[in-house]
Design a protein around this nucleic acid. Structure first.
Lengths: 205, 205
DNA sequence: GTGGGAATCGAACGGTCGTGCTTTTATGGG
DNA sequence: CCCATAAAAGCACGACCGTTCGATTCCCAC
């Protein structure tokens, strides 16, 4: 019982690392196996198919994301502090270089790889995950509204999408363009977004 | 002379269409050849390698982009009108469904595919293209500054990156989440961004 | 209409892919 | 310590990959 679970865990960690810079589609049973110094078939037995492996990697990554981004933010007091913590952790996640994701956010690569795919287990799982994540963001944003720090009539879903755009832009600038100013720019953009959502700001609709 | 160029052109168009939803790495000589109803080797002869094919596809896409996004915007009067036209065309480009790019912006997928790659012909070409594109954006933005419609001390590069983030967010919402409100949200975000850059707006630095 | 170069084809190459089998080896509860 | 069971290995498969090369077909200037 124990041995199998442990191997599986190790395999998922390595698979996540490789997905991080090759994408979910880029990982290979063969390459993964030799990285783990085991046989293709031995590794394959842990996941009934490559598709299942991809889903499992997404699930594994989500656990890591919840643990290192969401949970720490929940320790901050509700409102802008918590929202800022969430964004800062999110930014950190995208540069999670030294541990499990040398190639940046796996959700972003997966999103671009599967966005034009027909429905399927991997895509469906990823989309569900993203909806969950947007829900979490909205909850934190509404917290800041309830604290009176953000406008009462703010479109929280729009706000969440705006934040998402900022993070995608950060990924783009940091990873593709190798722009060291990317995190700074993301923070500037986030503050500007928050400012535009403060009470007293004229409604833009 | 004529026949070869024509075949090449047709091949590039089909290759772009396929790259659009499979990514640049997703295209294969074999699949592409059978789509064009010709032999693998016959097609291959037009491009000396797959890497070269990928670069050529990027170049082909850039021509299309310049023609359908940049050039029309340059017909608008300098300033916010031109900037808005650029954004609107850009938004249209990402949903260029019926012609050459059924799977959305090929530059975005390519960016995510090659962002963690070591330097190479394809990555280098893509990065150079993006820098060019950011330069173009900055020029249009500075046009609005010179017209007195945007703040004098505006960080134009930051502004361009913010726009880029909005478009990436649009791609994400429209393609992965299949959110029909995506274009509207992108427009709202763009207007908010413009508003925050107007003269008289307090500096956010 | 013929010759020559461009365009295309057919077949093959070594490699890797995901995935079934069967067999061997390791593990841990009684 | 034994033995059922779990884990890993070994091997093979058909398919497709990018690429090469020699043969074939086409187009067009003379």
């Amino acid at each position: 019982m124990s041995k199998g679970v442990q191997t599986r865990e190790t395999a998922l960690r390595e698979a996540l690392a490789q997905s991080s810079h090759l994408g979910l589609k880029g990982i290979t049973i063969g390459t993964l196996a030799s990285s783990l110094e085991m046989s293709k078939s031995g590794l394959f037995a842990h996941f009934k198919s490559k598709e299942q492996l991809q889903v499992d990697v997404l699930e594994y990554a989500a656990q890591l994301f919840a643990m290192s981004v969401v949970q720490p933010a929940l320790k901050e007091p509700r409102g802008l502090e918590r929202l800022r913590a969430l964004c800062e952790n999110w930014l950190g996640w995208d540069g999670y270089a030294d541990y499990a994701m040398p190639g940046g956010c796996v959700f972003i690569s997966a999103a671009m790889e599967f966005d034009d795919e027909p429905d399927g287990p991997v895509r469906d799982f990823l989309v569900a995950q993203q909806h969950q994540w947007f829900d979490s963001m909205e909850i934190v944003i509404r917290g800041a509204i309830r604290e009176g720090q953000l406008r009462e009539d703010l479109d929280t879903l729009q706000f969440a999408h705006d934040l998402n755009g900022i993070m995608l832009g950060h990924h783009f600038a940091a990873r593709l363009l190798r722009d060291e100013a990317a995190p700074t720019r993301a923070r500037v953009a986030t503050e500007r977004l928050i400012d535009s959502a403060r009470p007293g700001t004229p409604v833009t609709d």
